[in-house]
Design a protein around this nucleic acid. Structure first.
Lengths: 194, 194
DNA sequence: CGCGACGTTGATTTGCCTCAACGATTGTGG
DNA sequence: CCACAATCGTTGAGGCAAATCAACGTCGCG
């Protein structure tokens, strides 16, 4: 589909730069269309890209030796996703990324990104601010993990991701909250009964 | 003490910039000497600064309505500290910052910082990379909170902060790990008995 | 010394997990 | 389009890790 090279991902609407700069940025970005169930990244692979979600839903999760899953992040429209620990350090992934609902995403390599930051300084500012926002929400999640009960965390979760329950399974949510599917089921029951 | 204006905080050793740029940076930085027990920042205050720790030890903590404390971050030499959610959004603090061991720190305002980023682009890169590192360690902490038992989290903590137990109380550590002082006491006993 | 802050220990409770069985929903091939 | 299987969600019984509540050592400091 020739359409991909004429598309400018929505995230650039926030950056003001020249047509030349835009063209330069655009040449480093590739579109990907994913289907539910696709694995975008697997544990052990080199992590050279991060991904912008234009539509659909994905998640990053960690798989421990006993086979349990822990969801680190959900990504819906306008979020970025990767195994960031590996991405920043250019090492191999310890996380997996899975498509939960058919998605259109854009991938950008770290190498291209670093080069672009030098040429287009607004881009570095843009990503620094994105980073700051993500940092804040991680901090909030740590605090909630320390201070709230499972039920309170669930309530906080559904208000932070209002429509996500249409895209993800309950056991995805449970693995994000750090509880079992059985506990989540009981919490949901308790809430709807009131 | 006139020494403060001739001191260049250690963190600048990593940034290569001209003498003029250095002078420009330096003029925006103020040194503070804190004593154990000092409160650097209180809930409700405007957060206009972040702080570089040159020596000593501080912590950021949240106080809930029932009076319980949750430690979000410890900061020792070469760490940055603030209520970052409030700092990034230029709002009022929900956290408190307390000096746990006599400290020398350097404060930088957000306004000065943003201005400097435009003039000295290496500085923005430097802070973006710092941010990335902090982001990774927050992610690690979230994962550990989801996947590890209290005992395992404690073991991970003391290996990540090897000498911090000299500077902080056990109940600070407990409030960082999300457990009670009693539980921490029992865990410590269990470990030393082996 | 004596007081207050900190840490430890014990008894009991509780929130969530584990294990097991059973509905409900989704997807697939005949 | 239905039949059936697989996946997912719910419910119950029992167990365990960590919390709570209470009491008692211990240390540092005015």
């Amino acid at each position: 589909m020739g359409s991909s090279d004429s598309i400018i991902p929505e995230f650039f609407k926030e950056i003001s730069c020249s047509a030349l700069e835009l063209q330069c940025i655009q040449s480093t970005i590739a579109r990907l269309d994913l289907e539910k169930g696709d694995i975008l990244l697997s544990e052990g692979n080199k992590v050279e890209h991060q991904y912008y979600v234009s539509s659909g839903c994905l998640r990053t999760y960690f798989l421990d030796t006993s086979g349990k899953e822990y969801t680190i992040q959900f990504a819906v429209k306008d979020w970025w996703i990767s195994d960031y620990t590996a991405f920043f350090n250019s090492t191999t992934a310890i996380m997996n990324i899975e498509c939960l609902r058919d998605a259109t995403i854009y991938k950008v390599s770290k190498k291209d990104m670093d080069a672009l930051f030098i040429e287009v300084s607004q881009l570095e500012t843009f990503f620094r601010k994105k980073m700051e926002g993500a940092f804040s929400s991680f901090q909030k999640r740590i605090l909630e993990g320390l201070s709230l009960s499972a039920k309170e965390r669930y309530i906080s979760f559904i208000s932070a991701y209002p429509n996500i329950e249409q895209s993800v399974k309950n056991y995805h949510i449970a693995s994000y909250l750090g509880i079992t599917t059985e506990s989540l089921s009981r919490i949901r029951k308790e809430i709807t009964q009131k």
